[in-house]
């Protein structure tokens, strides 16, 4: 990565993306551009296609038709694109028998970081995820919340330009939830683009921009306040219900 690289005009772009599995179409022609340096929320009920979209963005699967590009023009399958993405899955996908530092080291090395900058970066990340005092503890000995923080650490250790978080606060207590959001806001301030999938309305309030997705299609797109006024609800939850099910169901 060269420091002189021009800032791309977007960090993520989906252009008429369709993804089918046999007869079932999970994503039905989604177009979307995320300019970067913002927290972008992908809000939708379970099975709406959020994870499928993430899997296409991370280059795990390719779209049936349409194009996904990253950082102003990179193919998600390219090494260059992959090295600029940080991915925090929903499950605790870290190595339980390794310590916090060993996990961070492993993911840093996998992303091709040099040893000296990695060492410095690990110290920074340990401060961010507030696990500096437990750095040598094996994950199996830590609480669920701490492991989740370590998971976040492994996703951002290589300074990704785009951070993808799949339901990052699912099953997390309110105190940790606030901490995670503070961290994300700080990272965003430093220039990282963040994409969050969630089915919690309360999460969506904290995003700069939210997309409502249902059955593989985008049904609303805009800042939370704008969506509330557009769909006439008292809050984002009602706006979401109106947008996804129509006004009658909101009245119920």
């Amino acid at each position: 990565m060269s420091a002189a690289a021009p800032t791309p005009e977007y960090i993520l772009k989906l252009d008429s993306v369709v993804k089918s599995f046999g007869d079932f179409t999970a994503i039905k022609g989604v177009s979307l551009t995320i300019p970067g340096k913002m927290i972008f929320g992908l809000l939708g009920p379970n099975g709406s296609g959020k994870t499928t979209m993430l899997r296409m963005i991370t280059g795990l699967i390719s779209p049936t038709s349409g194009v996904v590009t990253l950082m102003g023009g990179l193919n998600p399958f390219s090494t260059e694109a992959k090295s600029q993405i940080g991915y925090m899955p929903q499950n605790l996908a870290v190595y339980q028998n390794l310590s916090v530092v060993e996990n961070l080291q492993f993911f840093g090395r996998i992303y091709g970081m040099e040893e000296k900058p990695l060492k410095e970066r690990i110290d920074e990340v340990l401060e961010i995820i507030e696990l500096a005092d437990r750095r040598n503890e094996t994950l199996a000995n830590l609480s669920g919340g701490m492991v989740r923080r370590a998971l976040l650490g492994t996703a951002l250790v290589h300074r990704p330009k785009l951070l993808l978080l799949d339901e990052p606060t699912a099953g997390v207590d309110p105190v940790l939830r606030i901490k995670i959001w503070d961290t994300l806001r700080k990272l965003c301030g430093e220039g990282t683009g963040i994409l969050i999938t969630t089915h919690h309305i309360s999460e969506a309030y904290r995003c700069d921009r939210v997309v409502f997705i249902r059955a593989g299609s985008i049904i609303a797109d805009g800042p939370p306040a704008q969506l509330i006024s557009k769909y006439g609800g008292r809050d984002l939850e009602e706006a979401f219900v109106v947008a996804t099910h129509g006004e009658e169901s909101a009245a119920l």
């Binding site: 795990l60 993405i85 899955p89 605790l92 996908a93 870290v94 996998i110």
Partner: peptide, 13 residues
């Protein structure tokens, strides 16, 4: 099952 393989495949590996 733990999902770490998926994370490796998401990384430039």
């Amino acid at each position: 099952l733990r999902g770490t393989l998926e994370r490796l495949l998401v990384a430039p590996v």
